[in-house]
Simulated assay, not measured.
Amino acid sequence: MEKQCLDCGNNIKGRADKKFCDDQCRSNYNNRIKATEHPQIKKINQILLKNWKILNTLNPDGKSKITKSKLIKEGYNFNYHTHNYRTKNGSNYIFCYDNGFLELENEWYLLVRNNEEI
């Protein structure tokens, strides 16, 4: 009796422990499993990635100033970030991975990038 591919159901030829007929079927199967496992985590990761892309695009040189309205216009979600960093003088930087900002006066923000390797 031949084994069948877990994704497409076709007969598998080759090693006895083989589960998929090719790399595409393996990838399809695993992507389908991941998509249904934790939809809330996937949604949050998508928001974090979008926030990171916005900060990265608006801050090409690693340090710049921008208005809150520009961040909102680009779709930045202020409810999601990865971590905070408080300086010795009490300034609170909010980061989305390596890109972050410091809230200034009159709805201006200082965008920064942390180039340190983790």
Score class of each variant (00 low, 15 high):
5 C>Q: 14
14 G>Y: 03
65 K>G: 00
24 Q>D: 15
9 G>I: 10
74 E>T: 04
92 N>R: 06
30 N>A: 13
35 A>M: 04
94 I>F: 04
45 N>I: 05
38 H>L: 14
69 S>I: 09
103 E>R: 13
114 N>E: 11
64 S>D: 09
67 T>D: 15
116 E>S: 10
39 P>K: 08
35 A>R: 05
57 T>W: 01
1 M>S: 13
82 T>A: 01
34 K>L: 15
45 N>A: 08
83 H>Y: 11
44 I>F: 05
115 N>L: 09
49 L>S: 07
84 N>E: 03
83 H>I: 05
60 P>W: 14
99 N>G: 07
107 E>C: 09
57 T>Y: 01
4 Q>E: 07
74 E>L: 08
23 D>N: 15
75 G>F: 04
110 L>S: 12
41 I>C: 01
91 S>T: 08
3 K>D: 01
63 K>L: 14
40 Q>D: 12
104 L>W: 04
7 D>K: 11
84 N>G: 01
25 C>Y: 07
113 R>F: 06
83 H>S: 11
97 Y>S: 02
114 N>G: 09
33 I>P: 12
33 I>Y: 11
102 L>D: 04
97 Y>F: 10
61 D>G: 10
32 R>C: 01
36 T>P: 01
44 I>P: 03
74 E>R: 03
106 N>R: 13
20 F>A: 02
116 E>V: 01
105 E>L: 04
29 Y>C: 08
80 Y>K: 05
70 K>Q: 13
11 N>C: 03
26 R>V: 15
65 K>C: 06
84 N>T: 09
91 S>G: 10
114 N>R: 15
98 D>Q: 04
112 V>T: 10
80 Y>Q: 07
41 I>L: 09
10 N>H: 09
93 Y>H: 05
91 S>D: 12
16 A>C: 11
6 L>T: 03
81 H>L: 06
42 K>N: 11
64 S>F: 05
67 T>L: 10
118 I>K: 00
39 P>E: 08
107 E>T: 05
47 I>L: 07
31 N>F: 14
107 E>V: 06
92 N>K: 03
77 N>G: 02
73 K>C: 06
95 F>Y: 14
87 T>G: 02
25 C>H: 06
61 D>A: 09
75 G>P: 01
102 L>R: 03
69 S>P: 00
